[in-house]
Each structure stands twice: as structure tokens, then as C-alpha cells.
Amino acid sequence: MISELANKVFNQAITDYHQFDEIDHPVENPYTKDSLEHLFYAKNWIDTAQWHMEDVVRNPDIEPSEGLYWKRRIDAQNQLRTDMVEYIDSYFLHKYQHIQPSADATVNTESPAWALDRLSILALKIYHMQEEVNRPTADEAHKIQCQLKLDVLLAQRTDLSNSINELLTDIEAGKKYMKVYKQMKMYNDPTLNPVLYNKNS
């Protein structure tokens, strides 16, 4: 099933990233470019790098100029994340292009790739919460609280994985159909962000 594959590849990407734990370490995607695994690996690597950018920018002692630098990098990384989600949705649109939806088929609240995006972020939450459970310098109360949170995250992953599999099964059966909307982000567009276009007027 797709979710099992995604979880496996997401975990692999997270583990590979933390061998170096460097935001700018070059990606060495182990999968062939035309494979779904390649997309999943690239997607999660983007998310993992952004996760650590978010850690850096929250340093209370960060210099304002450095904070702005990281904020702009996070914006750019978030655009990469969105582009990759849309690319994964294109994969599924192509895969299911010959499926004829039934007359009473419905559209889902989110596309398969955006659901998989949540699964990728969830994999990161699980990894880092497990780190807190195992952190040698943490006291027992902290570890217990983190274990409780980890249990919830693991249950959430099971539920989300099942929901994604059910969605794709329904699409294959014609019970649901894909309807993908491009993310029309406005803040990076100099023609749509008033701060940017008023600056040039």
C-alpha cells in the first residue's frame, strides 16, 4: 500500500539526513528518478531541512539580520515543499487518468499528495519526539510526558496511513475522484503582494 511505502521512505530520508544533520548537505536520493520512492524521498528531505531551519530561527539569541535570513530561507523552502506536493499529485493524476468516476463519486477534502505531506511531517514529529524520550539529559518527568505524546503521534500515523490508503482505493474504484488546485501563494509574487508592488510604484 502507498502509505506503507511512504512511511518507509520518509523514515529512510530522516535517518539519512541525521547522519550529517546539516541543512545544506546535498541530497543523495537513492531511488531512480521516475519512481514514486524518489519523489517521497525528495519530499521528506525538503521537510526535514525545513524542520531544522525552523529550529534555528527560534533561537531567542539570534541576531535580527540572521533571523531575517532564515525566515526568507524558510519561505523559499516552503515553496519547494508546495511544488513537490503538486508534483506528487501530478503523478497520481497521471496514474488514475483512465479511471472513470461513478456518477455519485465525490471529491475528497484534500488531494492524496497533501495527505502524504501531513504523513511526512508526522514522521518528523515521531522521530524528534522519540529523541526526547531517549534524551539522556532529560529528567524522568519529561520523558514520560514525551512518551505520552509519542503514543498519540503513532496512533495518528496509523489513522492517517489507513485514510490515505482508503482514499487511493476509492479513487481506483471510481468512488472518489481527484481535483487538484494549485497553491496560489501571494506573498512571494511581486504582482500580488502589496508591500512589493507598492514599493515599485
Rank of each mutant, 00 (worst) to 15 (best):
L153E: 00
T169L: 01
S3N: 12
K175F: 13
I171E: 03
Y127F: 09
Y96N: 01
K149E: 07
I14T: 03
E131L: 06
L80V: 11
M178N: 03
K95D: 05
I2Q: 07
D189R: 02
F20N: 04
A13K: 02
K95G: 06
Y177R: 07
V152T: 11
K8F: 13
Q145S: 12
N7P: 00
A49N: 09
Q100W: 06
K149L: 07
A103D: 07
Q156A: 09
E86Y: 05
K199Q: 10
E166H: 10
L196Q: 09
N165Y: 04
V85Q: 04
Y69W: 10
S120H: 00
N78P: 02
P60V: 15
T48A: 05
V133L: 01
V27A: 05
N59K: 13
R58T: 10
Y69A: 08
I126P: 00
D34Y: 12
F92W: 15
Y31Q: 03
D117Y: 09
Q147S: 04
H52E: 11
S120A: 14
N59C: 10
Q50I: 15
N7E: 14
E66V: 10
N165A: 03
A105S: 13
Q156C: 06
E28I: 14
D24R: 12
T158S: 05
T109E: 11
K43G: 02
L167R: 00
N134Q: 14
F20H: 13
D104E: 15
A141Q: 08
P136T: 02
K143Y: 06
Q79W: 15
I88W: 06
Y187F: 11
Q79N: 12
N162I: 09
P60Y: 15
A49H: 08
A113C: 02
Q77L: 12
V27G: 00
Q100P: 03
L167V: 08
T109H: 13
H52I: 08
V85H: 00
L68W: 09
K8W: 12
T169N: 04
Y31A: 02
A141K: 14
Q130M: 09
T48Y: 02
T158K: 09
T15H: 11
D104W: 12
F10Y: 14
Y87R: 11
P190E: 07
Y96D: 03
L124W: 01
V9S: 06
Q50L: 11
Q50Y: 05
I171T: 00
L124Q: 08
F10Q: 04
T82I: 15
D139L: 01
A42P: 00
D55F: 14
L124P: 01
V57R: 06
L124D: 03
K176W: 05
T191E: 08
W114N: 01
F92T: 07
V56Y: 09
V180T: 04
Y31G: 01
I144V: 14
D34P: 02
M1W: 13
L196H: 09
H38Y: 15
W70Q: 00
T48S: 01
D61I: 04
K179G: 03
R72L: 10
P64T: 00
P60M: 10
D189I: 01
E166F: 09
Y197L: 07
D104Y: 12
T169D: 10
N11S: 11
D151H: 08
I121G: 00
L116C: 01
D24N: 15
K199P: 01
D159M: 08
S163W: 15
I171Q: 02
I88R: 07
Y91K: 05
N29R: 03
Y127N: 03
Q183M: 13
S90I: 05
I144S: 04
N162H: 07
Q100S: 12
A141T: 13
A155H: 12
K95H: 09
